[in-house]
Amino acid sequence: MKAEGESQLIEQARRGEIEAFMELVKKYEHRIFQLTYRLSGNREDAADLAQETFLQAFRAIKDFRGNSSFHTWLHRIAVNRSLNFLKRHNREKSYRDEAGQIDENSGRGRQKAELKVASPEDSSLSEEFRAGLKKAIEELPPAFRATFSLVVGQEMSHKEAAEVLGCSEGTVSWRMHEARKMLKKKLQPFLT
């Protein structure tokens, strides 16, 4: 879909044309769902948050003035909603339904066995490492989690992430560095 076509759809959606807005939904639903999934940690909440994101976007589309791209604007709504959701519901353990329970002690107990599996030369990492990584990401402070999800998960540049988060590129860069340090520290038992 060309930008011109998108502008037209936005204009039509502004006039309340649902089908035009649904075209925008179809274009962005996968990326928005991926983001809400990364932030909420489970499919059900991610689906609800993605739907709410689009409903909120439709409601607010009259106020969208194109100062940022529609893509950025939509991501900003999704981040706002997801972080507020996490704050309200205190969903620290939300990844567990799909990641399974993580026994930190057993992880440490198997440290030596995992070292080999998690070494840089090995292409397939253990499920336990992945579960540990999910948990570590989940435990990042909200601002860092959102930044990490946008840059690594959504593969955004620092500039794009900064636009979504309403901060400077320097802040994104610094948060990424701190987030990586925190993750490395928590995953130390798995890494050589």
Binding site: E29, Q34, Q51, L125, F129, E155, L183, K184
Partner: peptide, 29 residues
């Protein structure tokens, strides 16, 4: 270590939903 974290973090957040799921999602909206 960061290369591994980067690679795996990208993978673990990927979720595939069947087309029927997306239809229901769109219908809900």
């Amino acid at each position: 270590a960061q290369k591994i974290i980067q690679r795996e973090a990208l993978e673990i957040g990927k979720v595939e939903n069947p087309s029927q799921w997306w239809l229901q999602f769109e219908q809900g909206i």
